[in-house]
C-alpha cells in the first residue's frame, strides 16, 4: 500500500474518473498495462489531483511521438531508474 493517499480507478468519480478513462484510452505498449484492473501505481500516485495527472502524463504521451523508438526510450528510462537506485 502506498504511503501517499491514492484513489483507485474503481472508487473514482467525476473529473478523476474521466481522467482515468482518458489515460486508459491512450495507445500504449502492452508492457505498460499492469496485470490488475486498476491504473498503474505511478499514475494512481497522482490521483488526488486529476489536473496534475493530465499535465504530467501529457509529457510522456508527447515523447512517444518523437524520433526515438520504444526500445531506445525504455533503455534510457531503465538507465535513469537504475542510476537513481529506483525500483520503478
Amino acid at each position: 500500500m502506498a504511503w501517499l493517499g491514492t484513489i483507485s480507478r474503481s472508487d473514482a468519480v467525476g473529473e478523476l474518473a474521466e481522467t482515468y478513462a482518458m489515460m486508459a484510452a491512450r495507445p500504449i505498449p502492452d508492457a505498460y498495462r499492469p496485470p490488475h484492473d486498476d491504473a498503474p501505481g505511478i499514475i494512481r500516485a497522482h490521483s488526488l489531483d486529476p489536473e496534475l495527472m493530465r499535465r504530467t502524463f501529457a509529457i510522456s504521451g508527447s515523447l512517444h511521438g518523437t524520433a526515438l523508438d520504444w526500445a531506445d526510450r525504455e533503455l534510457i528510462s531503465s538507465v535513469t531508474s537504475r542510476t537513481n537506485e529506483c525500483f520503478y
Binding site: M1, A2, T6, H46, N84, C86, Y88
Partner: peptide, 12 residues
C-alpha cells in the same frame, strides 16, 4: 514520485 509516494512496481 515512485520513491516518495511508496507506490509498488506493478507492471508484468
Amino acid at each position: 514520485v515512485a520513491d516518495a509516494s511508496g507506490v509498488e512496481f506493478d507492471y508484468a
